[in-house]
Design a protein around this nucleic acid. Structure first.
Length: 1068
RNA sequence: GCCGAGGUGGCGGAAUUGGUAGACGCGCACGACUCAAAAUCGUGUACUGAAAGGUGUGGGGGUUCGAUUCCCCCCCUCGGCACCA
C-alpha cells in the first residue's frame, strides 16, 4: 500500500472532476426535490480567498454533497461581486483597468475554489461587472423607477472625502466610513434613493416567517428602529418686526382700526408682519366687543379663531399675501371652513371654502406651526422648550424674526461642517442656540416656550423637531441644566406599598390626599429625623397633609414645627412629587398620596414643646441614611431617600400625571392618546431606517440608466438600449466629481440616441444594488431575454439555506430582503423573503485569537495550507475546530489531529477482514444515523468526532471491506478527494459522490446492553450493565445484587426513580 | 446605556423534553518499537486525597429524587447599536 500523498490524490481527482463534468447541474430536472443552497459570493480581491470564505464554502459544500446523496437536486452556485472600489483604487494606482484586474482575480479565485474541491458548476457563474449581468441590474432599476420606488433628491448625505463618494446610512459605522474608516461628513448632494422605508414594517414582520439567527434578526429590527408616538403641532406666532409700528400700520392703517381700539377691548397684538399677517389675542370675555369692533371698523374679512379655554386668537392675512393651506387642528379647520362657506357660492366643501378664502378674501387665516414627534405625548405639559435641528427649514423661514441671527447662522454652519462622529460619538455634551425673538406655544397649556436649535436633534429623524421635557428625558435634562431652562415634573412615580403594615388593600375605600414628605437633617450631624409610630409598626420620615389654603412649602415647615418642635428649618431642596398607594392603618382606608418631597436642613437646635397629641403618635429618632433604609416602611419614603442620594436626575419611567391640568392623576400610558387628541395631534409611528442612497460618484459600478432632457428632467433609458454600457474612455483619478462625467463616448452616445442637449446620468450604482438580486440570477445566468426565466425562478426560489458572515446584517441582508419585497410588489416575484434559512459562520482568527489583517501580518493563506496539509485536511479541521457559528482559532498544532485521522483512514483500507463483526456493524449504523443528523443541523464538528470514534473502535476490532466502503461514503462530503481515491481503490463503481447516502437500520443500530447509572439520593454511586430496554424491576434486582453498591443501599428505598436505559435513582 | 451571544480541564470543544459532566481532538506524562530520533502504536490525563471519599460547569440563592440544562439576583467576556425624541 502506498503512503497517502494528499497532493497527488487531490490533483488527480480535481482534474478528473473537471474533465467528466462531475459538478454539472441540470436545472430543469424537476424529478428530484430541489434544494437551493447559497454561498455569499466573494469580491474578487487581489489577495485571493481568505480563510473565512474557505470555512463557509466548505460547510456548504459538505451540506451540498450530503443533500445530493440523499436524493436532492442541489443548486449550489457561486460568482463574483466584482464591481467596487478596490479594483478602481488599484486602477488609480497602477493604471490597470478594473476589467483586467477582475478577470485575473476571478481566475485566481476559481483556481482556489477548485483546489478546495468545492462542488460548484463552474460554467454557471455570475459576474456582476459583466454587461450581461448589469443589464438586468439596470432593468430592475428601471422597473423600480416606473413603480415609484426610486426618486432623486438633493439632501444632506453621508460623504466620505477619502473615497470621494456618497455612502448609504448602513455604510457608516460609528460616524466613519465602513471601507476606509475615515470620518464621514454631511454634504448636500443630489442622489438617487430607493424607497426602502416604504417596506420598514414589512422588513420587521418578515422575520416571523424566516429561520435566521436571533442576533441578526434583532439587529435588523433594531436598525429599522420602529417607535410609536405622536406628532403634535406647536404654534409659532410671528412676532412684531424690527419696526412694529410700520408693520401695524401696513395692515391696519387704512382700515380705521388701531392698536388702541384693540387694546380698548382688552386685546393685544401678538404678531404683525410686513408680509401680511396680523395676530390678535384677547380674553374670551370680550369676544363680543371685539366682534363688534371688527364689524364696525373693518370691511368684511375673515379670520381664524384659535380657541383656547379662556382666550381667542384672531389671525388675519392680507389679500396680497400668498397663502397656502396649512395643516390645522380639526376644530380650527372646521371653523375656517364654516367661515369660508358663508361667503362661498360654490358647493360648500372644505376645498372650495379654502380656495375661496385664498382667492377672494381681504384677510385669510394662517397659523405657522411646527410639528414635533414624541414618544411621550403624556409629558406634553412638561415641555418647557422646543428644539429644532440646525437643518430644520423653519430656521430659514424665521430668519427675519430672529434677533441673534449671527449666532444662529454660525451654529448652523458649524453643525453642517461637523462629521457625524463629532456630532455624536465624540461628545455628548449639549450645544445649542436659542432663537431669540421667537417663541412657540405649548398647545397643552398655551404657555410660551423658547425655541432652540441644537445638534442633538437630528434632522432626519421624526420631524426634525422636538418638544423638550427636561424632567423626563435625559438629553433634554442635560440641555435644560446647561441653559437654565425650567424643569417641570409632570410624571410622578407611582409606588404601591406591598408590605404590612400598610399594604395596599384591594377593594377598600380609597381617599386621595396631597401631602409632604420631608427628609430633615440634623443641624450639625449627618443624621436625619425618623418617626417611630406608636399605634402601628411604622417607621416614616416626617410627613403631613396639605390643607387647601396652603402651599406645600408652608405645610412642610409647619409640620416640622408641630411634630418635632424645631423652630428653624430651611427648605434646601424641592425633590418633586411621588404618588404612594397604601393602607392607612389608623384611619382604616386606602390612600393615594401625592407626596411632595423636600429636603430640609435644621439651622440650629432651637426647639419648643410639642403637643401631647403629637407626642402620643410617634417618637422622633435621629438616624443615618443607611439606618433609615432599614427603618422606613413606605416605598415612597425609600424613594425620597433615593432621590436625595442620587441627586437631581430626570425620571424617565412611567407613573401618574401631575401638573397636567385636567389630566392629573391619570396613568401616563393611558394619557398618551388622550393628550395627543386634546391638542389636535395624531398618533404616529416613526422608523430610524432611511431611504437607501444608491448614487456613487465612482467609476467601477453599474451606470444608472437615466438620461436628462435639455430641461434637466430625468428619463429612463429604454430597454432596447440596455445594457447601458459603462464607458471606457475615463480617467480613474477621483476628484469628487463622477468619473463618467469626463466620458466623451457616453456624452455622444446620449446625444446620438436622445437628441441634442440630452445628458447622461454620470453616477454609478452602489455595488450593494448588484448583490441585492444575484441569487435570482443563478438559476438562469446566461439568459439574455429575462433576468431569469419564470419556470426556473418558480422552481428554485426562494433560497433554502444561506450561509455567510454576520458582517452584512445591515447591508446586503437587509437590501436583498428589500429587493425581494419590492420586486414582489411590482409583480416580478411571488414570494417576499429571499432566504428561508440563514446561518453565519464564525470568524477565522489567528492562533492567539487576533483578527487576521495585512497590517498585523498574521494572514493565513488557504493556498499554503492546502499545499502543506491537503484540501481534505484543511476542510476537516475548519469543520472540526469549532461549531460553524463560533470563531475558529487557526492553530497549526491542531490540524495534525485531522491529518492523523485521514492517514489512519487511509491505512485502514489495507486492514479489512472478511468476517463481519456485529459490534462494528452496530457502530457503523449508529454512525450513519449520527453523521446524517449532524449534517442536517450543520453540526459538522460532532459529526467528525463521531467518525473519529468509529475509526478508533474498528481499528481495535475489525472492519470488512464492505463496511469500509460504507464508511468512505460517509466521509465523502467532508473529504471528497481521499474518499474518491479510497472508493476507487476499493473497487467501487464510478464516483463515490454519485452514490446515495447509506441507509441505517434502526434495529441494527441498537445496543444489546446498556450501562445504567445508579444514584443513591441523587448522587452517582456506580453503574450496572443490563440488557437494552430492561424494566425497573430487573434493573433494581441487578443493583441490589451488586456487591460494590451494597454499602450505599442500607434499608428499603422510599422511592425509586427509573429512567429506561439511563439511570436508576434510589431515595432512601 | 440598549440589544444579542457566551462563561465547562493546560487548550479547542462535547453533553437539551433536567438523567453517569469533560465525547472527539490538541498538548502533556509514561511505556512499546529503535543504536538513537522521527513517525507509529499502547496506557494515563478535571481538582483534591495514601485510600475510602470529597469537591467541581463564572458567583450567590431557588425549584427538583436529580440542575452545565429551568427560575431569580449579581459578576465578567465577546459582538453589534448608540443624543433615534
Amino acid at each position: 500500500m502506498q503512503k497517502y500523498d494528499h497532493q497527488k490524490v487531490e490533483k488527480k481527482w480535481q482534474k478528473t472532476w473537471d474533465e467528466t463534468g462531475a459538478n454539472k447541474i441540470d436545472k430543469d430536472d424537476t424529478a428530484k426535490p430541489k434544494f437551493y443552497l447559497l454561498d455569499m459570493y466573494p469580491y474578487p480581491s487581489g489577495d485571493g480567498l481568505h480563510m473565512g470564505h474557505t470555512e463557509a464554502y466548505t460547510a456548504n459544500d459538505i451540506f451540498s454533497r450530503y443533500k445530493k446523496a440523499t436524493g436532492f437536486n442541489v443548486l449550489h452556485p457561486t460568482g463574483f461581486d466584482s464591481f467596487g472600489l478596490p479594483a478602481e483604487n488599484y486602477a488609480v494606482k497602477t493604471g490597470v483597468h478594473p476589467k483586467e484586474t477582475t478577470k485575473t482575480n476571478s481566475e485566481n479565485f476559481t483556481r482556489q475554489l477548485k483546489s478546495l474541491g468545492i462542488d460548484y458548476d463552474y460554467d454557471e457563474m455570475v459576474t456582476t461587472s459583466e454587461p450581461n449581468y448589469y443589464k438586468w441590474t439596470q432593468w430592475l432599476f428601471i422597473q423600480f423607477f416606473k413603480n415609484d420606488l426610486v426618486y432623486k433628491k438633493t439632501d444632506t448625505v453621508n460623504w466620505c472625502d477619502s473615497c470621494k463618494t456618497v455612502l448609504a446610512n448602513e455604510q457608516v459605522e460609528g460616524g466613519a466610513c465602513e471601507r476606509c474608516k475615515k470620518d464621514v461628513m454631511q454634504k448636500p448632494i443630489p442622489s438617487w434613493f430607493f424607497k426602502i422605508t416604504d417596506f420598514a414594517q414589512d422588513l420587521i414582520d418578515g422575520h416571523e416567517k424566516i429561520d435566521w439567527p436571533e442576533h441578526t434578526r434583532k439587529n435588523q429590527i433594531n436598525w429599522i428602529g420602529k417607535s410609536e408616538g405622536a406628532e403634535i403641532e406647536f404654534v409659532v406666532p410671528r412676532v412684531v418686526n424690527d419696526d412694529p409700528n410700520e408693520a401695524r400700520s401696513f395692515i391696519m392703517g387704512e382700515k380705521n382700526i388701531s392698536e388702541k381700539d384693540i387694546n380698548a377691548v382688552g386685546g393685544e397684538i401678538v404678531e404683525a408682519t410686513k408680509n401680511g399677517f396680523l395676530c390678535v389675542r384677547f380674553p374670551k370675555s370680550s369676544a363680543k366687543a371685539f366682534e363688534e369692533l371688527i364689524v364696525e371698523k373693518m370691511e368684511p374679512g375673515f379670520w381664524n379663531e384659535y380657541l383656547t379655554d379662556d382666550e381667542v386668537v384672531f389671525i388675519f392675512k392680507h389679500k396680497d399675501s400668498s397663502v397656502e393651506r396649512l395643516v390645522l387642528s380639526e376644530e380650527t379647520d372646521a371653523a375656517i371652513v364654516e367661515l369660508g362657506n358663508k361667503f362661498n357660492d360654490d358647493e360648500p366643501t372644505d376645498e372650495s371654502a379654502w380656495a375661496w378664502l385664498a382667492n377672494n378674501s381681504w384677510y385669510a387665516p394662517i397659523v405657522p406651526k411646527v410639528r414635533v414627534f414624541t414618544t411621550r405625548p403624556d409629558t406634553l405639559f412638561g415641555a418647557t422648550y422646543m428644539v429644532l435641528s440646525p437643518e430644520h427649514e423653519l430656521v430659514g423661514k424665521l430668519s427675519e424674526k430672529i434677533e441673534n441671527k449671527a449666532d444662529v447662522d454660525k451654529y448652523v454652519a458649524a453643525a453642517a461642517k461637523k462629521t457625524d462622529l463629532e456630532r455624536t460619538v465624540e461628545t455628548k455634551e449639549k450645544t445649542g442656540v436659542e432663537l431669540k425673538g421667537v417663541k412657540a406655544i405649548n398647545p397643552a397649556n398655551n404657555e410660551e416656550v423658547p425655541i432652540f436649535i441644537a445638534d442633538y436633534v437630528l434632522a432626519h429623524y421624526g420631524t426634525g423637531a422636538i418638544m423638550a421635557v427636561p424632567a423626563h428625558d435625559e438629553r433634554d435634562w442635560d440641555f435644560a441644566k446647561q441653559f437654565g431652562i425650567e424643569i417641570r415634573q409632570v410624571i410622578a412615580p407611582r409606588l404601591i406599598q406591598t408590605t404590612e403594615p400598610g399594604a395596599f388593600r384591594e377593594g377598600e375605600p380609597m381617599v386621595f390626599r396631597n401631602g409632604v414628605i420631608a427628609l430633615v437633617k440634623h443641624w450639625s450631624e449627618d443624621k436625619y429625623i425618623a418617626l417611630k409610630w406608636k399605634e402601628v409598626e411604622w417607621g416614616t420620615l416626617l410627613t403631613g397633609g396639605i390643607e387647601d389654603d396652603e402651599t406645600p412649602e408652608q405645610t412642610v415647615l409647619k409640620e416640622v414645627r408641630e411634630e418635632t418642635g424645631f423652630m428653624n428649618a430651611k427648605i434646601t431642596r424641592d425633590m418633586g412629587v411621588v404618588d404612594g398607594m397604601f393602607y392607612h392603618v389608623p384611619k382604616k382606608e386606602n390612600r393615594t398620596v401625592h407626596g411632595h418631597m423636600f429636603y430640609i436642613e435644621l439651622q440650629d437646635d432651637a426647639q419648643e414643646q410639642i403637643s401631647d397629641e403629637e407626642e402620643a403618635r410617634h417618637s422622633v429618632e435621629w438616624l443615618t441614611l443607611d439606618e433609615l433604609k432599614s427603618f422606613l416602611t413606605a416605598p415612597t419614603h425609600h424613594h425620597a431617600v433615593e432621590v436625595f442620594e442620587k441627586g437631581d436626575s430626570p425620571y424617565v419611567s412611567d407613573g401618574n400625571l401631575v401638573n397636567s391640568d385636567k389630566f392629573n392623576d391619570l396613568d401616563n400610558l393611558e394619557a398618551k392618546e388622550m393628550i395627543t387628541k386634546a391638542v389636535g395631534g395624531e398618533m404616529k409611528t416613526t422608523y430610524k431606517l432611511r431611504d437607501w442612497s444608491i448614487s456613487r460618484q465612482r467609476y467601477w459600478g453599474a451606470p444608472i440608466p437615466i438620461v436628462y432632457d435639455p430641461e434637466g428632467n430625468p428619463h429612463v433609458v429604454p430597454d432596447e438600449h440596455l445594457p447601458w454600457l459603462l464607458p471606457e474612455d475615463v480617467d480613474f483619478m477621483p476628484t469628487g466629481e463622477a468619473p463618467l462625467a469626463q466620458s466623451k463616448e457616453l456624452k455622444e452616445r446620449t446625444e446620438k440616441i436622445f437628441g441634442e442637449g440630452w445628458t447622461p446620468e454620470v453616477d454609478t450604482m452602489d455595488t450593494f444594488v448588484c448583490s441585492s438580486w444575484y441569487y435570482l440570477r443563478y438559476p438562469d445566468p446566461h439568459n439574455d431575454e429575462e433576468f431569469c426565466r419564470e419556470s426556473r425562478l418558480k422552481h428554485w426560489l426562494p433560497v433554502d439555506l444561506y450561509v455567510g458572515g454576520a458582517e452584512h446584517t445591515y447591508l446586503h441582508l437587509m437590501y436583498a430582503r428589500f429587493f425581494t419585497k419590492a420586486m414582489q410588489k411590482i409583480g416580478l416575484l411571488d414570494f417576499d423573503e429571499p432566504f428561508l434559512k440563514m446561518r453565519h459562520q464564525g470568524m477565522v482568527l489567528d492562533a492567539e485569537g487576533v483578527k487576521m489583517s495585512k497590517s498585523k501580518g498574521n494572514i493565513v493563506n488557504p493556498d499554503d495550507m492546502v499545499e502543506r496539509f491537503g484540501a481534505d485536511s484543511v476542510r476537516m479541521y475548519m469543520m472540526f475546530a469549532a461549531p460553524l457559528a463560533d470563531e475558529i482559532l487557526w492553530n497549526e498544532n491542531g490540524i495534525v489531529g485531522v491529518v492523523r485521522f485521514l492517514e489512519r483512514v487511509w491505512r485502514l483500507q489495507g486492514n479489512t477482514v472478511d468476517e463481519k463483526s456485529p459490534d462494528a456493524e452496530r457502530s457503523l449504523h449508529k454512525l450513519i444515523r449520527k453523521v446524517g443528523g449532524d449534517i442536517e443541523e450543520l453540526k459538522f464538528n460532532t459529526a467528525i468526532a463521531a467518525m473519529m470514534s468509529f475509526v478508533n473502535e474498528v481499528e481495535k476490532s475489525s472492519i470488512t471491506k464492505e463496511q469500509y466502503a460504507t464508511f468512505v461514503r460517509i466521509l465523502a462530503p467532508f473529504a471528497p478527494h481521499i474518499a474518491e481515491e479510497l472508493w476507487e481503490a476499493g473497487g467501487g463503481e464510478g464516483s463515490v459522490h454519485t452514490h446515495p447516502w447509506p441507509k441505517f437500520d434502526e434495529s441494527l443500530a441498537k445496543d444489546e446492553e446498556v450501562t445504567i447509572a445508579v444514584q443513591v439520593n441523587g448522587k452517582v454511586r456506580g453503574s450496572v450493565v443490563v440488557a437494552n430496554d430492561s424494566d425497573e424491576a430487573t434493573v433494581l434486582e441487578v443493583v441490589q445484587g451488586e456487591d460494590k453498591l451494597s454499602r450505599w443501599l442500607e434499608g428499603e428505598p422510599k422511592k425509586v426513580i427509573f429512567v429506561p436505559n439511563r439511570l436508576i435513582n434510589l431515595v432512601l
